[in-house]
Design a protein around this nucleic acid. Structure first.
Lengths: 216, 216
DNA sequence: CAATAAATCAAACGTTTGTTTGATTTATAT
DNA sequence: ATATAAATCAAACAAACGTTTGATTTATTG
């Protein structure tokens, strides 16, 4: 009756995951201590080992649970028969730019971990999840090529270039900011810049993929 | 007279930098302890603080001393009046792919540090060095546009996309390997794949940059 | 209510970390 | 040769790390 909603039922676990999401994103996995983590979650220090076995176990569960956002959208794009292959690619670009811009701190954590290759369990989780998404995108390119709308580009490398170009904006935001003469995060990731970046990406991949005489 | 060439003159310092280059590239900055470092360099533990003030000081000097490779090539490209703007861009792609493929471990370290943004001194060193290179590349794009050979693309974003696409191959080599059905590093970074990747990059950026009626 | 299990806690564990100390050796210069 | 500085060393430092312990509280169940 104190205005205390009895929402509990062991939300310590959830609190730890939420604190970890924020802190890992901000400082990186190594830099965040278990003590720091527990304090931020309002939990006891030993609760990390208690619930997740180890700090690394918590990390793995965090990645696995927060990752698979894009899948559903890509699958519905794949199933859609009313869209052209390029329209699917265009929407994929929108999807990933939105996704990366929105959760940029967390994506930085994931990409650092991929680059480090120090935690094999994590690398496997990420490659499996991301691999399926890439197969779906691959399908769009192959579809366009089979219908004669796309050039015979290398689908695999094209996907690497696409996702890499987007990731670069996130990972090197300091560099991007320097080039655009914008210093703080909010400016660099403003809606205006997001729109410009999407536009530039679409222009380039349209020129790369779509046969000159086929469309538009 | 023991066959011992008196090459010394304090090469302990140099040995530490060389050991650090190899170990940081392989395991990342955080994962390499000062003890590990000193042992690998055949030096005493305290020599790191003695010569560089701290482990971080060693890191900063390492980055600064190993970084500025591309500058000279880009400057000579900029000064060359016999090349077209696209030829300069094409050679820039060759340069960066070679550079990134060759020193991929070390570049991973640099890019992780950029992404982390935890050591301001290092971020400044890197952005300053890389920023000048990007200005030179920017010059190639602007030159092409002024001569009517290039489309009116956004030069800044184009550079981000270019370097990002190349960096992605390095940072996500596990993912690339999965897509190409190649498991080990030597395969993924083989000359054949390097050539394919360069080709794909040039195709895409040629389509993006070069006006359809202007050149080839 | 009693008994059992789950969750939380303060405290300590044993390592490992980067750095400092002070003695000792090696080199340089007077 | 002697004095001064530079370089190296083993040892110790304090702090921080992730994890474990065992008691204690809270919740669940028969």
């Amino acid at each position: 009756m104190m205005g205390n909603i009895p929402c509990d039922k062991t939300d310590t676990r959830k609190a730890l995951l939420e604190a970890a999401e924020q802190l890992f994103a901000q400082h990186g996995f190594e830099a965040v201590s278990v003590r720091h983590l527990a304090t931020a979650a309002g939990a006891n220090l030993s609760m990390v080992s208690y619930y997740f076995g180890s700090k690394e176990g918590l990390f793995e569960e965090l990645i696995a649970s927060r990752f698979p956002y894009a899948r559903g959208v890509l699958e519905s794009l794949a199933a859609d028969t009313t869209l052209t292959a390029w329209e699917k690619m265009s929407q994929t670009i929108d999807l990933y730019v939105d996704k990366f811009f929105g959760g940029r701190s967390f994506h930085r954590v994931i990409m650092r971990e991929m680059s480090l290759q120090q935690r094999p369990a994590l690398v496997k989780i990420i490659t499996d999840l991301m691999g399926k998404n890439m197969l779906l995108i691959r399908g769009f390119i192959v579809e366009g090529q089979e219908k004669g709308q796309f050039n015979q580009v290398d689908a695999d490398f094209t996907i690497v270039m696409l996702l890499g170009a987007i990731a670069a904006y996130i990972n090197n935001s300091t560099m991007v900011g320097k080039m655009l003469n914008e210093t703080d995060d909010a400016q660099i990731f403003s809606d205006a810049n997001k729109a410009r970046f999407k536009c530039e990406l679409k222009n380039m991949f349209h020129a790369h993929l779509v046969r000159v005489s086929a469309e538009r």
